[in-house]
Design a protein around this nucleic acid. Structure first.
Lengths: 260, 260
DNA sequence: CGGTACATTGAAGGGGCTCAATCCACGTGG
DNA sequence: CCACGTGGATTGAGCCCCTTCAATGTACCG
């Protein structure tokens, strides 16, 4: 019932705000027109990658990052016997290619789950940002810090949470992240992943993901129909999952006076 | 048998090289005397934290990072019912406090496992590095990138590896990390963690960690006596754990010509 | 209309957990 | 000097959560 065929509707951030990264960062504090112009410029030159193609290939060398403008991509590792662990899921406005860009050869592959639009950002250009735009530099750091926080929660998911807690937490994280870029309502969104992908992200088997989702539905905590996920009781689900909304939502741009 | 009482010998990086971070970064490429001086200076002002005290407290605000000079610290999250997940383990030469320093309030606590010596590094000072010392700036990025790679492997551990593979992988990661800072020989080191800590890092129970270590010993892959771990067959253990030495060891400083 | 991709459900088995006891080394205070 | 407390390692028994294997259902597509 979830994500039966993947892209009936593409993953495109709200067009009322020009660029997804600009939208995301503007939630951390008011941006000056100057800063907006620079950010938008970073996201202007774009490149399209088709569904199921690799954006970054393990073992190759890269000296650019990408900003994901449209679409969904995953970074993952496949063990010799076929087991797969999805390390993270990128949505519009996310940086892609860290830490690959800092290593001699990319450690993991990044694959486009749907058709993706990317904006390449040469690493040197990113470093250049740090000179003239300390607030934007901090914002980029913020972006990486936020990703690190998601990593941490992801680790807690697979390390110490039960399947039910894991799936609940995962749904809430998706809700929150998609809200930031205008792809989710107050309490609902279109599931961009198949159950197989959810399983590989959470370290579960597909049948068990299915049963777990069923239980969440039976317990009237969520509703899932036609790929649309509705969180029917955010409070109860958050309590069940030990979800702290804050970890995705408490970063702030520094004051202009805070320059070095 | 492992780590019966924790600190018979303290965790101090090889004194032949002045500072652990300097030692670590010098493996990524030759440092100029200038760069060494700056790095050493970063690590000069120090502060001592006693065993079992918190270095960073969840919920508080911080505007400095720390470089761990001596000792071992862990970042972890404790769920409401007492389950604990260790997010990462810091050794001398590691940065501590990312991403806490970028958030309104620290998301996780960091605790000293042994008496620790820390060098505070105000965030503003770190940003200042980016102006004048692009190679060092890149090296700091490298440090975070390396941490991100460890996070990724950690995630694969708990998500998709069996207990045996997990523990094997963990031992190899410890070996590699400790070698870098001169705290491990070719194939042996002093285990700095109790089995309870290993369990909470790997998402296992204490009894099962114990049984798993026993199996590794029975299989003649490792030997553990008096807290000293000897990897008797690095090749076989690496194969078992799907361990790729490269992920901790392939970062390089950029050429001086690569300035922005 | 067969093929593909995904969701769903059931049955059986196992890997790792819980609970609980025991052992051991060490430090402390009487 | 010994009794005791403490932190940690070790081991066993039983069980349960989740996996594996397998089958079925279903929408969509060329």
């Amino acid at each position: 019932m979830i994500g039966a065929d993947m892209p009936p509707r593409p993953m495109i951030a709200d067009p009322r705000v020009a660029r997804p990264l600009t939208r995301k960062l503007s939630r951390c504090g008011a941006l000056t027109p100057d800063e907006i112009a620079i950010l938008d410029d970073l996201q202007s030159a774009t490149r399209v990658i088709r569904r199921n193609r690799e954006i970054i290939t393990e073992g190759r060398k890269y000296d650019t990052l990408f900003i994901l403008i449209e679409g969904v991509s995953i970074r993952c590792r496949i063990l010799h016997d076929g087991r797969r662990q999805i390390l993270n899921i990128a949505f519009p406005g996310d940086f892609i290619g860290f830490p690959s860009a800092f290593s001699e050869r990319a450690l993991y592959s990044i694959t486009a789950l749907s058709d993706c639009v990317l904006a390449p950002v040469p690493f040197s250009r990113l470093l250049g940002l740090f000179d003239r735009q300390p607030r934007l530099a901090a914002a980029v750091f913020w972006s990486f810090a936020c990703e690190a926080a998601m990593y941490a929660e992801h680790l807690i998911d697979v390390g110490r949470r039960s399947a039910l807690e894991r799936v609940a937490h995962f749904l809430l994280e998706l809700l929150t992240r998609l809200q930031v870029i205008g792809l989710a309502d107050e309490c609902s969104f279109r599931m961009p992943l198949t159950q197989e992908l959810i399983a590989d992200a959470l370290g579960l088997s597909v049948p068990h993901v299915n049963r777990t989702l069923r239980q969440l539905r039976d317990d009237e905590l969520v509703s899932i129909e036609e790929h649309i996920v509705i969180i029917k009781d955010v409070e109860a689900l958050s309590a069940l999952a030990d979800f702290q909304h804050s970890y995705l939502d408490q970063f702030r741009l520094p004051d202009l006076t805070a320059a070095h």
